[in-house]
Simulated scan of single mutants.
Amino acid sequence: MPDAISIRTAAKSGEAKASSRATLADPRRATRLVLAIFLGPALLVYCGLTAYPAFRTIFDSFFTIEGMDATFVGLANYRELMGDETFWVAVRNTFIWSFVAPVIDVATGLLLALALYAGVPFARFLRVAWFTPVLLSYVVVAILWMWIYNYDWGVLNVMLRAVGLGDLASSWLGDPNLALGAVIVTHAWKWAGFNMVVCLAAIHSLPKEVLEASDLDNCGWGAKLRYIIIPMLRPTLLSLYILSFIGKMKVFDLVWIMTQGGPLWATETVSTYVYKRAFNWNTFDLGYPSAIATVWFLVVCAAVIILNRVLGSRERLEY
Rank of each mutant, 00 (worst) to 15 (best):
M1I: 11
V134M: 08
R127K: 00
L233Q: 00
Y319T: 14
K224P: 07
G174A: 10
F252Q: 00
P2K: 13
F279R: 06
V34C: 01
V103P: 09
L165W: 10
M146S: 14
A101K: 06
F122M: 02
A42M: 12
L135D: 08
P207V: 04
S214C: 11
R29D: 13
F72I: 04
L317Q: 08
V106N: 01
A90L: 08
L311W: 11
M196K: 01
T57V: 03
Y273R: 04
E212Q: 10
I306C: 06
A118E: 07
T57A: 11
L238S: 10
T294I: 04
N280W: 15
L307C: 11
C301L: 14
R124F: 02
G14N: 15
G261E: 05
V198S: 09
S205D: 15
T236P: 13
W153T: 15
R127N: 10
L206A: 03
L35G: 12
I37T: 12
P102K: 06
W281V: 03
V91K: 02
I246K: 07
M82H: 04
L156Y: 12
L311D: 00
S271K: 02
V304K: 06
G74H: 03
S6H: 10
I246L: 08
G220K: 04
I96Q: 08
I246E: 10
A101W: 07
G261K: 04
T57N: 15
T94G: 06
C301T: 09
Y273T: 03
L286G: 02
G67Y: 02
V251C: 03
R226Q: 01
R29S: 13
G262H: 03
L240Y: 05
P263M: 02
I65N: 09
L298R: 03
A192E: 03
A188S: 15
F131K: 07
T50H: 09
S98N: 05
A213M: 09
P133C: 09
V299A: 12
L237G: 05
W281D: 12
C199L: 02
A10V: 14
G262T: 02
L111R: 07
N195D: 15
A25Y: 06
V299I: 13
A18E: 08
A303M: 11
S214N: 01
E268R: 10
S205L: 13
L298D: 04
N280T: 10
V310Y: 06
V91M: 10
A303K: 08
E318I: 12
I143S: 10
S239P: 00
R56Y: 14
W281L: 15
T86P: 00
V134Q: 08
Y241R: 04
V185G: 10
A303R: 01
G247C: 02
W153G: 13
R29G: 13
T132F: 14
P41C: 08
L298C: 07
T71D: 12
T267W: 07
V255S: 01
G262I: 06
D167S: 15
V185N: 13
